Simulated scan of single mutants.
Amino acid sequence: MKNIIYESTIKCPNCGFEKLLIMPEDACMHFYECENCKQLLKPLKGDCCVFCSYGSVVCPPKQKENKGC
């Protein structure tokens, strides 16, 4: 069984600011406000959350879906 990663670095597409965050285990985060430029990040079309769109690691629910890969 694959280990789930709970840390992801979100990178703002507007200003490039990066922040390491702890992801919720069983929920998707639909919005994140950049601490630097205050832009509200939303998931890109087809993604479930901001971690899947802007993070270095996809969210735990998506990691669990791909556990057989």
Rank of each mutant, 00 (worst) to 15 (best):
M23F: 05
C49W: 03
G16P: 10
C28R: 07
I5P: 02
K2E: 14
N36E: 09
N36R: 10
V58N: 12
K11S: 14
E35D: 13
V58T: 11
H30Y: 12
C59F: 13
K11Y: 03
I5F: 15
D47C: 14
S8M: 11
F17C: 03
V50K: 04
L44Y: 04
S53E: 05
H30R: 15
L20E: 13
M23T: 02
N14R: 10
C28E: 09
N36F: 06
S8N: 08
P24Y: 13
M1G: 12
F51R: 04
P13D: 11
F51Q: 05
H30G: 09
M1D: 03
K11N: 07
D26F: 10
F31S: 10
C12T: 11
I5A: 14
K38M: 12
K19E: 08
F51T: 02
V58R: 14
C12D: 03
C69D: 12
P43Q: 09
K42Q: 13
Y54W: 07
F17I: 04
P13S: 06
P60N: 12
M29S: 10
C34K: 01
Q39D: 08
K64S: 12
C69H: 11
K38N: 13
V57Y: 10
K64I: 13
I5T: 13
V57M: 12
E35A: 03
Y6I: 12
C37Y: 00
